[in-house]
């Protein structure tokens, strides 16, 4: 039972990070019908930027919370600029090109970002500096620490904020209009390019925060961290119904739970044949199962089958 509760806690924390990243995929997909393959790398860049800034600031004896705040802002700004640039360079010129073209440029962007990061930050793992005394609390036999609590609550707040932006603001309305019908939105005076750019920037800002959360949670950051994380977050988006914001959040949390419970129990289930080192396989299995049985995802209405 303690194991169960512990895995639930871990799963929800991890899942809330997936949800933040999944939102980035789903927003772009909703508007452009494009999988932004490079999104996972944006998360990684966000984590790296924040980490570097933190290290420098703490070295200058800036108070930890101030350093953290500044680093978050820096990472968000950097990622927003990056997201904007990616869209301008790699996607916008190909908006009317055959489907394959933007997919290939997206892969190209991923590779470039990953290797640039490797050149800048090296191949080694960077450890996340300790900012607060990370106290652990006991919860019915399971433990949860402060960082996990902060991550979970912050993620929920950000998601609530995003929903407010999408449903209550002019930008949100424009985004929904473009997602519904680009041509009609344009006729109604919506500046499509601006909305698309802003969507990329918004998604990238979330990615920056998610990157910071992941590295805080694991205490590590690495140039390769974005790839698998991106893959999983994409799975979360598909699970919830790609293009659907609530779906991305639900899918993220669910995937986190599935993964965590799966890793916790796989040994028992398979009689010790598979161990927790197969954790990464779960996301992939979920992806396949969803695509086979419900390609539109849990909350998706529109059928994904469309050429």
């Amino acid at each position: 039972m303690e194991i169960f509760l512990q895995q639930i806690i871990n799963g929800l924390v991890q899942g809330s990070v997936y949800a933040l990243v999944a939102l980035g995929y789903t927003m772009v997909y909703g508007i452009l019908g494009l999988i932004n393959f490079a999104h996972g790398e944006v998360v990684m860049i966000g984590a790296m930027l924040a980490l570097s800034s933190l290290t420098v600031l703490l070295g200058l004896s800036v108070p930890p919370l101030l350093a953290l705040l500044f680093s978050i802002i820096l990472a968000m700004a950097g990622c927003m600029a990056l997201g904007y640039t990616i869209e301008r360079i790699a996607y916008r010129p190909l908006r009317h090109a055959p489907r394959l073209a933007p997919l290939i440029t997206a892969i190209g962007v991923s590779i470039v970002l990953q290797n640039l990061a490797m050149m800048i930050w090296g191949r080694e793992y960077h450890s996340f500096p300790q900012l607060i005394v990370n106290a652990t609390h006991s919860l019915g036999g399971a433990v949860i620490n402060d960082i996990q609590i902060i991550i979970f609550i912050l993620a929920l707040l950000i998601m609530a904020g995003l929903m407010a932006v999408v449903h209550r603001t002019r930008l949100g309305r424009a985004m929904r209009a473009v997602a519904e019908n680009q041509h009609a939105a344009q006729l109604m005076g919506v500046d499509i390019n601006r909305v698309i750019s802003l969507t990329f920037m918004l998604g990238s800002a979330l990615a920056a925060i998610a990157g910071l959360m992941v590295s805080a949670n694991y205490g590590l950051a690495h140039y390769y961290m974005g790839f698998v994380l991106g893959l999983k977050a994409f799975t979360a988006a598909v699970l919830g119904g790609i293009g659907n914001l609530r779906g991305a959040m639900l899918g993220g949390l669910l995937l986190g739970l599935i993964e965590s419970l799966g890793a916790g129990y796989i040994g028992d289930i398979t009689g010790g044949f598979f161990g927790s080192n197969y954790q990464d396989v779960f996301a992939f299995l979920v992806l396949i199962v969803v695509l086979v049985f419900r390609p539109s995802g849990l909350l998706g209405e529109r059928l994904a089958e469309r050429a």
């Binding site: 494009l34 999988i35 393959f37 489907r99 394959l100 997919l103 698998v228 893959l231 994409f234 799975t235 598909v238 080192n277 197969y278 990464d280 396989v281 996301a283 992939f284 992806l287 396949i288 695509l291 390609p295 994904a304 089958e305 469309r306 050429a307």
Partner: peptide
């Protein structure tokens, strides 16, 4: 499904095989 799904599933498959 749409081509993008194949891209991402094959990407995942490449990783899974390695795991």
């Amino acid at each position: 499904l749409r081509g993008d799904y194949l891209a991402i599933v094959t990407l995942g498959f490449g990783e899974i095989i390695r795991i």
